[in-house]
Design a protein around this nucleic acid. Structure first.
Lengths: 296, 296
DNA sequence: GTTTATTATTAAGAAATGCTAAATATAAGG
DNA sequence: CCTTATATTTAGCATTTCTTAATAATAAAC
């Protein structure tokens, strides 16, 4: 019975501190034990062990009951503080579990954050003011990197060609991609399509567009690039080239673009992605339901 | 695996919180386990149990190590606070054990506090400034009552006739009691002693005096009473009667009394008394040594 | 006084908790 | 593919902590 390794800190437990508080606030130990729902024997043994670990005698007999020694005052105050903080922690953890509180680092591409799910995100934010929602808007590639690296918890982006084993992906929206041309060329024949302005190399959407055009045998020479769809639309208006965009992003501004055909060239699939190693956060699950427009 | 009685508070332990802090401040769990002096397996199991009790997942895998989830921040801060407070408590308890700190509620009769041990009490107080020494000066009877009742820890008084089983008594000083008479009667014969002024009924010293005089066949008619020896001495000076006092209390003032004989009438024994149920407080033991003039 | 009722502690066995050591994943680097 | 480093799981053992039952101590009642 001595210090085993390096008796740095005594291994007190919250339960022992509760025993102490109950013994301090009840006249008899029998009453305290009943309040705690244990036998008086358990209380005695627990308090004896607490005294041994603190290294001080805290009680002395007075008549047929035990009373706190004056020295115990400090220990009692310590116990009160720790128990109070533990209670706070418990409430907080409960809120976390129920999803009424928590933190979500959410990354989304602009089309989702600004157009398709803007109102759902706002609604979620208003319904759960205690959820600390942090929104990052960026292209799909960087979002996925941040997700893998651990600096994001949930990403809404264009479906990647391959998805890492660590990630769980789920399609929640499909979006048509239409062809837009400068005004004077709107009615021209297929063989004269282009040149093109589009998203930069590495963009998921550009990969999808390139693949669709290749399937039609159309060359895809890109002469100007931007990650901002508004910029691409403006380039088309200026006659710099053709582009392919979701209508939601081509129709913005005072001079919306008109597609050369109503039929989409192709479509892109938008997905929700999260790390499979991260357990299901209830708050995040609620946000996912909002984004999928499933409301309980 | 459900709430057994009334899952009020999770039974977290200081050790589990130390595990958490070690895991948070080391890159790998292997390193954290080594720092704690346990096997990585113990660390894993301990942290798993901690997560279960808090009810939240705190870690997630990142590559081949585990990292804290953002949610764990609050739990981590809780752990830091509790561990820090526990450290403080440990230091305080150590000081208590070593007697360099603590509280002593000390009761003494005036002769001891003012005359015989005044310098020792002052010296102790100066040597151990962190010991909270509370001095109560009162007659022996009330001091013993307060000791039994628990509002004093140590009493220095006149030896009582019978001492309760709950108390431990120890003689540490013997004090002669001399007879003092008004000046004109100093040389008179024994048969004309008195009348007397003395301590009130119930006083330990008065009981001793009465007993000694009775043994000599001298009547002991008390015509005036006071608990204050200075008052008794003054009464003698005023010719109100004879008295019996320890010389230390008769020699005070500008006009010290002269005993009728150098030989003491009797003597009173002064004792140190403490509750037997109260364990030996190191600080109190040190004070007792000072009072017994045993200095290590 | 003696008895009775209440409270606290101790003893003994059962359940739980927590550890080590060994075996089994999992990930990174040749 | 193999090796190394890390983390977890499993199994067995030791410790801790509980309950029940017996004992001790005390106050109150008779």
């Amino acid at each position: 019975m001595s210090d085993k390794k390096e008796m740095l800190l005594p291994n007190l437990s919250v339960q022992q501190l509760e025993y102490l508080l109950a013994a301090a606030s009840n006249k008899t130990r029998a009453a305290a034990a009943q309040q705690l729902g244990v036998t008086p024997s358990a209380l005695t043994q627990g308090l004896t062990e607490l005294e041994r670990r603190v290294g001080l005698t805290l009680f002395e007999r007075k008549g047929r009951s035990t009373v706190l020694r004056p020295q115990a005052k400090e220990v009692l105050e310590y116990a009160r503080r720790v128990v109070a903080e533990t209670k706070d922690l418990t409430y907080w953890a409960q809120a976390q579990r129920e999803g009424t509180s928590g933190q979500i680092r959410f990354g989304a591409i602009d089309a989702i954050a600004v157009h398709h799910r803007a109102s759902e995100i706002r609604e979620f934010h208003e319904s759960f003011p205690n959820v600390d929602l942090r929104l990052t808007v960026a292209p799909s590639g960087p979002l996925l990197e941040a997700l893998l690296e651990g600096s994001l918890d949930l990403v809404a982006c264009v479906e990647p060609e391959v998805v890492s084993e660590d990630l769980i992906s789920e399609v929640f929206l499909e979006e048509p991609l239409l062809i837009y041309a400068p005004k004077e060329k709107t009615t021209k024949a297929n063989q004269n399509w282009g040149p093109w302005v589009s998203f930069p190399q590495g963009s998921h959407t550009r990969r999808i567009i390139a693949s669709a055009l290749a399937a039609l045998g159309v060359s895809y020479e890109v002469t100007a690039e931007s990650n901002q769809p508004e910029v691409l639309a403006e380039m088309v208006r200026l006659g710099l080239g053709w582009t392919v965009l979701p209508p939601a992003q081509a129709n913005t501004g005072i001079d919306p673009l008109i597609p050369i055909k109503k039929k989409p060239l192709t479509k892109r699939r938008l997905v929700l992605i999260r790390r499979s190693s991260a357990p299901l956060d209830p708050a995040m699950q609620t946000l996912v339901n909002y984004l999928k427009k499933i409301e309980p």
